[in-house]
Design a protein around this nucleic acid. Structure first.
Lengths: 228, 228
DNA sequence: ACAAAAGTGTTAGTACTACACCCATGA
DNA sequence: TCATGGGTGTAGTACTAACACTTTTGT
């Protein structure tokens, strides 16, 4: 019984994931998602939180942690039978590189690049499912706000959508749509010019988590697939 | 490592679930969902299929089996630590009552009634999540067709929606919407008058599993909740 | 003054809701 | 012929995409 966590963020204008270079067999030298075994007195969600904290430091609370899949093919771990539950963490850009405890080398990598690598175990599938989950969550929930700092502009939020979905969105229409949803964005009253141009109003994430007017993606990405 | 399966169907115009009266401690005499432990050489999905087959006979292939949640509270089983993965099976009305192997007494019960019972373990939560999952799947996928026999009319499909969602739908609009979706329904060319009135065209489920023009529910039912 | 980004107006198209209406059968 | 359910037509409303346009800053 284990958990694996795909920690996703937006860094330098890219959609990135945190990977660990494995220092021991099996899959020595390969990249893997952070993960670990379930302790006797915790839930899987708590185990995932623990992993997130270990790998990224204390800034986990701003993020969002959701269960994605369960991986149970008997041969997925060559050592012994391990069923793993995967989580996706959507977090704001972490303040600095901070190597975790048990893993020597952690590195951020664009998700597309990561999906081109030979990952350990079935982590390619796990990452692929996590990314697809995140993409879908943007459509139906306020998950995108988890990638932003505490106070953000509408344009910054739009950039999250554009980067995760890899598609440009109409700035005007996006602004109208997103500000119209009741209690989705909560104005702070402040403005900023940090992105240049006319000052933009700052918002916090509001109460509304689930949205029903989908911010439709132009074309759905490939289908999900977990176990057979 | 266990699986629990909420087997749902439409029987006698009601949305029903298959429950088992437990014959031994813990929770002796209480109703529970069918379930069992994971064997060493199977995936969780295969274990769920096995449970479904054991409880309902060989008619499982027409149905639809999907993973819903993972339940990992350390104290959820009083005997020892058991993490359980839940599945929901959406199946057509089973041909006859057929008591399974390991359970003495199985019974179909309307889901609302079942959610009013004191169920064993955390099966109330599991059932509740499974029902909510099924309701949501009707909105986004062709899951409703899994409740119908192989060839069905548009009105029979509509009745599935109305029963599961507990809300009346406009027959004309439903017909138009559902027949417009590309490859969602595949006409058999036959017609039937088994529901009375003018002969209705018969359809099979088509290729399209995921639909993007949601058949919107008037008001969403309560939120999901799995582990803490 | 000009560039850049925020935010609003406008218009044409599309989908949905509600409900009227016609169609094809069994009794 | 009547009741029953299947299926289509239609008008008003609502949302959307595309894009023009105005606003407010920094340089």
């Amino acid at each position: 019984m284990a958990v694996d966590v795909a920690i996703l963020t937006i860094r330098r204008g890219e959609f990135e994931v945190l990977l660990i270079r494995r220092g021991k067999a099996p899959f020595e030298g390969r990249l893997a998602l952070p993960g670990g075994f379930l302790e006797v007195d915790e839930t899987l969600h708590q185990a995932a939180e623990r992993e997130l904290l270990e790998e990224t430091g204390t800034w986990a609370e701003g993020g969002r942690l959701e269960r994605v899949g369960v991986y149970s093919r008997p041969e997925r771990d060559p050592r012994r039978r391990v069923v793993s539950v995967s989580y996706v963490a959507m977090v704001p850009d972490p303040p600095r590189e901070k190597a975790g405890g048990d893993a020597a080398a952690t590195e951020w990598m664009p998700v597309d690049k990561a999906l081109g690598e030979q990952l350990a175990f079935d982590h390619w599938q796990i990452l692929s499912d996590a990314v697809e989950h995140a993409r879908q969550q943007l459509e139906r929930t306020n998950a995108a706000t988890a990638f932003c700092r505490e106070a953000f502009t509408v344009a910054e939020l739009r950039r999250v959508y554009e980067i995760v979905w890899q598609t440009p969105l109409d700035a005007g229409n996006f602004h109208r749509k997103v500000t119209r949803i009741e209690a989705f964005l909560e104005p702070t009253g402040e403005t900023t010019t940090r992105d240049g141009g006319r000052p933009a109003a700052l918002y916090r994430a509001g109460r509304t988590r689930r949205i029903q007017l989908p911010l439709a993606r132009p074309e759905p990405v490939g289908a999900k697939g977990t176990d057979a």
